[in-house]
Design a protein around this nucleic acid. Structure first.
Lengths: 113, 113
DNA sequence: CCTATATTAAACCTATAAGTTAATTAACTT
DNA sequence: AAGTTAATTAACTTATAGGTTTAATATAGG
């Protein structure tokens, strides 16, 4: 699987996004990360492995803990991918805004009229 | 499934991203969209349904064709979600850049030395 | 050395994603 | 009316995602 697909696939799960959100405020161990969730620690450990394979997190080792930290690179790649579409949705927005302005100025009829 | 998860899940497939890329340059029918791919038209039709459910495309009807067009809203939502992390990876970048500058100025040793 | 804690590995279950082929629906064309 | 083109629906297969429980591994501390 290509890296962008792996990243987006990893990000598609709400548990994993919550984990990333938690890690955005600093490192945390596996059990710390698992605590908020209503699922087994093993399940969370698997989610972490998915995130790790996608390069979204990395794990260190401190005694028996594996402190996880967020890795920005894949997120930047998503951002880069989105770049191609930014132009597109800005165009659409511009068109909508221009249209809304025309409406306000009474220069066109509303569709429902 | 929440909408962000549906969007990211839809985007995680390279075929579907290729379809979106194609649609960024204008509307296209189902068969037109299917043409470049080495899979059945039915398979592509299913991909389109996934994209449609996620709100990433919409389908019109013109005679027997269903012209598809890109819808920007879910992509913007992804962009908004990324926003929270932009700060984070900029921080990291800044740190790296600052470090690189120090290296160039010979003010610190390289890790390997 | 023994035990508790942190994490991973193994084996398993179930639902669903992604593809197939064959059949169906709908609209245009002759 | 019959045939062609466009697309969807249905039924089916296979692989994988996401969860479980139980067992294994590694480290810390008395």
């Amino acid at each position: 699987m290509d890296t962008l697909s792996a990243t987006l696939s990893a990000l598609a799960d709400p548990t994993r996004r919550a984990i990333l959100a938690r890690l955005a405020s600093g490192e945390a161990s596996v059990s710390e990360l698992a605590e908020p969730f209503d699922m087994s620690l093993v399940a969370v450990s698997k989610h972490l492995k998915v995130l790790e394979k996608a390069g979204l997190i990395s794990k260190g080792r401190e005694a028996q803990w594996r402190p996880c930290r967020l890795e920005p690179k894949p997120l930047r790649q998503v951002d880069d991918w989105l770049e191609s579409y930014r132009q597109f949705w800005n165009d659409n927005l511009d068109r909508l805004e221009a249209y809304a302005t025309l409406l306000q100025q009474g220069e066109v009829d509303e569709p429902s009229k």
